[in-house]
Simulated scan of single mutants.
Amino acid sequence: GGQTITTPVSALTGQGVPELLELVLLQAEVMELKADPKGTLAGSVVEAKLEKGRGPVATILVQNGTLKMGDSIVVGSTFGRIKAMTDYRGGKMTEAGPSTPVEVLGLSDVPAAGDKVEFYPDEKSAREVAQKRQEEERAKTYVVKARGLTLRDLRNKLSEEGLKQLNLVIKADVQGSVEAVRGMLEKVRNEEVEAKIILSGVGGVTKADIDLAAASEAIVVGFNVKPDGEARKEAEKRGVEIRTYNIIYELIEDIEAAAKGMLEPKFEESHLGTVEIRVRFQFSKKGIIAGSYVTEGKVTRNALCRVTRGKEEVYAGKVATLRHLKDDVREVTLGMECGLTFDDWT
């Protein structure tokens, strides 16, 4: 007697999939779900992310009308003129009709999942609408404070100053992660304190995020992202704490524990420097030797390290040996060349 249709399916064997598709069509017919390819454009963002070399990328599901190359659109508080369209296989498209998912490039920023897509006759009018919405959002979240805050300081703030609010700046790798983290953190509250998210977005932690955190006495939380060099230096200078996580439950547990004043000590990363591997040698006995150049800070022997290729982490471990020219050295600093080997990486 309920309103929800259910059917058993198996992704492994394909059992029940034909029945599921029939029921979807039946339900659409019963609910009179219709769309006009020639009507006013309407759609929603399914997922969005910031890709290196491509900029903001949004996956949009067209719900009415037809989305075409070159269209000027407003998506939530972002805008843009569509420069490229691809289907779910990566093939190029020139237009997308109702019920068609499409990945688009050309937006000014990364939209939020669920944002509505609206058509505008030109890019100028789309920009004006988007900027007005951005100003309204800033007005809602604008907070003026004086200094940074760490999770370990939270208990003192609660007792000494009666702090009732924990301000957070959230950055994640994709919009779906942002929404998941945001949704869970917004539920963190007790009789003493509640979490308030003053900014959430896609991409690495930047200096602008640190400036906002310092002004609003907030903590910066990163999920599957890292701060850039400038952001890290600014955070140290202004006393802003940056916490990065790869597991969402650890993130939530830390914030909940801090709100209760029971945060356990945590081993935190201390960033020493960054090197660029410029040439790679493979030896049967020594393993991999990386001819490198120090681009930031310094590198030291026996330091823990990560090696990434693009966004993919290909090694995590320890620097085994460090050489400059023909000499074994303890550390190599900014602007110098060096040779590295790594523990258990062959």
Rank of each mutant, 00 (worst) to 15 (best):
D228H: 12
N224A: 04
E51C: 09
I198L: 10
E337C: 02
A58Q: 06
T206C: 04
E296G: 06
K260Y: 15
E118R: 04
L25G: 04
K140T: 03
P56K: 05
N302Y: 14
P98K: 02
E123R: 13
I288M: 14
V110H: 10
V45E: 05
S216N: 02
G339N: 11
K260V: 02
S159E: 13
I82F: 05
T13Q: 00
P18T: 08
V143W: 13
G53A: 07
L23V: 03
T100L: 09
K226F: 11
A11L: 03
G287L: 06
K52G: 10
G91R: 13
D211G: 02
A303Y: 07
D327G: 01
T150Q: 01
L154A: 11
G70E: 06
R182S: 15
S200Q: 15
L149M: 12
G91M: 07
T94H: 05
Q175A: 14
K298T: 07
G204K: 09
G201Y: 15
V240L: 04
V181R: 08
D228Q: 12
E313M: 15
M262V: 10
E268V: 11
V178C: 05
Q63D: 02
L263K: 03
M69C: 00
A96C: 09
D36H: 05
G183Q: 11
P121K: 14
G203Q: 04
I60D: 02
E194Q: 14
Q15Y: 01
E161R: 05
G287C: 11
I170Y: 12
M93N: 13
A130V: 07
V144I: 15
P265Q: 03
V57H: 01
V205P: 05
E103T: 14
A112E: 03
K157A: 14
K145E: 15
T7C: 08
V144Q: 15
I288G: 07
E95L: 04
I247T: 04
V221S: 06
A258N: 03
A213C: 03
A112G: 00
A290L: 12
R278P: 05
L163E: 12
R330F: 00
Y245S: 07
G90F: 01
T78P: 02
D211N: 14
K196V: 07
A146F: 00
G39E: 05
A208I: 08
P121V: 10
P56G: 08
G114R: 00
N167Y: 12
K226H: 14
A113N: 13
G273W: 09
L149W: 09
L212I: 11
T6R: 13
P111K: 06
A11R: 01
E331V: 08
L21D: 01
T274F: 04
N246L: 11
